[in-house]
């Protein structure tokens, strides 16, 4: 048996190899890449500090957004038209305006509300906060979380919808209370859909946090910018930041793979 030769594919492969080699060659030999500068700054303390801020922002945002997202999803699924309406309006607002605009908005919230306080008549002030003292980190966390929660709501809702109606009904018929049914039966199965999608959101968020450099929060990108604004080594420092983004994304990708495999239990031989 003589197999047909795939000349076309050999040709395409050869062209690709040439292109890749060419790219590696030019980036290694072009002195403007300044690889020595890249290596020098890769573990610079400002860069590492920025990386930590980026990671904190990513994790905190995703945690807050997931919690709000679950609540919003429950509101959207509920029979109550008011709850549903409020949740839909929230989604409409935060998905319909650019994140960049939202971030700048929260950073400048003091122009709108110089002082925010919560008080109950007869009890007094419970909570008070000066709009002027909002830090870039708080503005960033607020902006990213509220925006992301609108997307998480959609992901959670989709996951819950993917769980058969009979599952919740069987739990209810067995005498489980609504929250037990949701927490023990529906949500764990919805996670099979929610987790992969959320994994993608985490990876997206890691990179989206770079937007907050516009409100002067020293995360990874802003730290790189802070350095190159003094040294003018723009390209090497962008490479430094990119290396870290790539590294973290790769680790997250591996984690996602194992998490999804674990969640697949019970669905191995799904007919």
């Amino acid at each position: 048996m003589v197999r047909r030769r795939a000349y076309g594919r050999w040709f395409a492969d050869a062209v690709l190899v040439l292109i890749v080699l060419g790219l590696i060659w030019t980036s290694a030999t072009n002195p403007n890449f300044q690889w020595d500068v890249v290596f020098q700054y890769l573990t610079h303390q400002m860069i590492l500090g920025g990386l930590v801020t980026t990671l904190q922002l990513t994790v905190l945002t995703m945690v807050i957004a997931s919690v709000i997202g679950v609540v919003l999803a429950l509101m959207i699924i509920s029979d109550d038209p008011w709850l549903r309406g409020v949740a839909e309006a929230y989604k409409w607002l935060f998905r319909g305006t650019p994140l960049l605009v939202q971030l700048i908005f929260w950073f400048n919230i003091s122009a709108l509300y110089p002082k925010i306080s919560l008080s109950i008549a007869g009890v007094g002030e419970l909570f008070s906060f000066s709009g002027n003292s909002i830090t870039p980190f708080m503005a960033a966390l607020l902006g990213l979380s509220l925006h992301e929660s609108a997307y998480m709501a959609e992901i959670v809702r989709g996951g819950v919808m993917a769980v058969g109606h009979g599952q919740g009904e069987a739990a209810k018929a067995m005498g489980m209370k609504p929250m037990q049914t949701f927490g023990r039966i529906v949500l764990p199965q919805a996670l099979r859909v929610i987790v992969p999608a959320t994994g993608n959101q985490v990876i997206l968020m890691l990179k989206t946090t770079s937007l907050v450099s516009v409100i002067a929060l020293p995360e990874l990108l802003y730290s790189a910018q802070a350095i190159y604004s003094r040294t003018f080594e723009i390209i090497p420092l962008l490479i430094v930041a990119s290396c870290w983004y790539l590294a973290v994304c790769s680790i997250l990708g591996v984690g996602q793979y194992y998490l999804e495999r674990r969640l697949g239990r019970g669905h191995k031989s799904k007919r």
Partner: peptide
């Protein structure tokens, strides 16, 4: 139930 409705993840 007609369609058993066993908890698929257990």
């Amino acid at each position: 139930f007609q369609h058993f409705n066993l908890f698929e993840h257990k």
